[in-house]
């Protein structure tokens, strides 16, 4: 596939013009094929197209502090795998990418847990308390509007409760409820059967609901501000 076919646009431009969600000019398969033939520009196209989704996934799994590094790790693994013909098209590129991202994220969580056991807490990482992981926070002196503060509080609560779940439960919840993947696609990402995925999701939702209600006993969807 000739390199000049691909148009790799600047991300800032794409975001500024609201084109991030527009239909891709070249499908993923063509870009993947070009990358496998050594076209670096085509890889840039994949990065432009998916870095936001990978960032969101890693941020939701591991927190935003490490999401940039993890996103970069994911794409370097993807590049490495594509150059070794590691992508065998048994699933869509997006599913395969999510699978790599999820593995990177879960590995990060495991390493983080080991570091917690071995070296004690880092000032940059969430703090493990009796109530689970709690992000270290600094007082915000800005005079935010009330609604925005409520939204941030709710987002923070969701994030904290997510961190209380096991990596598997969190993965199921993030893929299905936060990322909006279909059951079938999420099962492919996690390399498990559909039934297994659903049972994990059930446990994850149950655990999330229980912990969220403990964390936010006053929360009512109609009372608090809409998040979106």
């Amino acid at each position: 596939m000739p390199a000049q076919v691909f148009i790799v646009r600047n991300d800032a431009t794409a975001q500024a013009t609201g084109e991030a969600a527009s239909a891709p000019e070249v499908n993923d398969s063509a870009l993947v094929e070009a990358v496998q033939q050594g076209d670096a520009e085509a890889f840039g196209g994949l990065v432009s197209r998916y870095h936001g989704q990978v960032y969101a996934l890693t941020a939701r799994m591991c927190g935003s502090a490490d999401a940039e590094d993890l996103t970069q790790d994911v794409f370097l693994k993807v590049l490495d795998a594509l150059r070794q013909s590691g992508f065998r098209r048994e699933a869509s590129f997006r599913t395969w990418l999510y699978r790599i991202a999820m593995n990177v994220a879960i590995n990060e969580l495991r390493q983080r847990r080991r570091r917690q056991q071995t070296t004690g807490p880092s000032l940059d990482e969430p703090m493990l308390t009796e109530d689970g992981y709690v992000a270290r926070q600094l007082a915000d002196s800005t005079d935010e509007p009330y609604q925005r503060a409520v939204q941030r509080e709710l987002q923070q609560a969701v994030h904290e409760v997510l961190e209380l779940l096991t990596p598997r439960q969190r993965a199921a919840l993030v893929l299905i409820d936060l990322e909006g993947l279909s059951y079938e696609e999420a099962a492919q990402v996690l390399s498990c059967r559909l039934g297994t995925l659903k049972s994990r999701l059930v446990r994850a939702r149950r655990a999330f609901a229980e912990k969220f209600r403990e964390r936010q006993p006053e929360w009512r969807p109609g009372r608090d501000a809409a998040i979106a």
Binding site: N10, D11, A12, Q15, A40, F43, G44, V47, S48, H51, G52, Q53, Y55, A56, A59, R60, S64, A67, E68, T71, Q72, F75, L76, L79, Q155, V158, L173, D177, L178, G180, F208, A226, I227, A228
Partner: peptide, 21 residues
């Protein structure tokens, strides 16, 4: 959960990844 906004990456993240690649 479904209405939670997706975390937005920094504007220069893609270019940094491309450079690393």
């Amino acid at each position: 959960l479904q209405e939670m906004p997706a975390p937005v990456p920094p504007a220069d993240l893609a270019s940094r990844i491309k450079a690393a690649a």
